[in-house]
């Protein structure tokens, strides 16, 4: 079996815009899932609402496409009722951190055995480009027409502070590393959170000086800085360049977890 065997071929091509990073994250996730050697009938994908949350519809396992922000609460019910199922969640920055913020921190606190992949495009893609809790200060969106002024969430710090067992961030450029991180997350008992920075050329890139799809992916390539390097710079008293995307595994620990199959 290869990861393409997990695709729901009769629904492709998907609805994503040309160059949307979400499709890449689906590839990486399915690759990691495929490496786990899981059976399809034991695997369930869950999501909320948003472009990112459409992903489970393109995967041929059982899948639950729920309401905006609530994927983790639904997934908690599935996993607690049947710990034998492998439950993987796709979510977006708005879905996870705005309307679903409370469920997010509580799922981390419970450290329930789920793997969450957040496609963070720093925007509300599906509804046409409104600001989200991760829209950078100064960035343009339809609801921040003069540049966003709100401080943002660091989703990985949030997950770490709230108690997740595994926390990692990569981008849609770092496909191999991202796949490895998701694979690690799938293996670790407890809550695994993987943030994937993705391009939304239609509703973020276009308004924020990324003319071509490739421009934003090139930006990920050039502005990503490994966590270890960022730490080293700080230790040396140097500053991490502004606008860096710190990537790497941030947390890997063994807090007591819920919903782990015994």
């Amino acid at each position: 079996m290869t990861y393409t065997d997990w695709l729901r071929e009769d629904r492709l091509p998907h609805i994503y815009c040309a160059g949307c990073g979400n499709g890449t994250i689906i590839n990486c996730t399915l690759n990691a899932v495929d490496h786990m050697g899981w059976k399809k009938e034991d695997t369930v994908f869950v999501s909320g609402i948003g472009c990112s949350s459409r992903a489970p519809g393109y995967i041929s396992t059982d899948s639950l496409h729920t309401t905006h922000g609530r994927a983790l609460a639904f997934a908690t019910g599935i996993k607690m009722a049947n710990p034998g199922l492998h439950v993987v969640i796709f979510t977006g920055d708005g879905d996870l951190a705005a309307i679903g913020g409370n469920h997010f921190i509580h799922a981390c606190r419970r450290n329930i055995d789920l793997t969450v992949i957040c496609m963070n495009n720093q925007i509300y893609g599906m509804t046409g480009g409104q600001g989200s809790p991760t829209t950078p200060v100064g960035a343009l969106s339809t609801t921040t027409p003069y540049g966003s002024r709100e401080p943002t969430f660091d989703l990985c710090q949030l997950a770490s502070a709230a108690g997740a067992n595994f926390v990692s961030r990569w981008t849609s450029y770092h496909v191999k590393e991202l796949t490895r991180a998701i694979h690690t997350g799938l293996q670790i008992p407890g809550f695994s959170f993987i943030e994937a920075a993705v391009q939304c050329p239609t509703n973020y890139g276009r308004r924020n000086k990324f003319r071509q799809v490739m421009d934003q992916v090139e930006y990920f390539k050039t502005h990503a800085i490994l966590q270890q390097k960022a730490e080293r710079l700080k230790a040396e008293g140097k500053s991490v360049p502004e606008n860096s995307i710190v990537i790497g595994d941030f947390i890997r620990r063994d807090r007591p977890a819920m919903g782990v199959k015994r």
Binding site: P13, Y16, G19, G21, G23, T24, I26, N27, Y173
Partner: peptide, 17 residues
């Protein structure tokens, strides 16, 4: 097994095989 495979992985539209 698949070697390299970078193009297939990044292709958001599952178009490369």
């Amino acid at each position: 097994r698949t070697l390299c495979g970078m193009c297939q992985m990044i292709c958001p539209d599952q178009a490369i095989s």
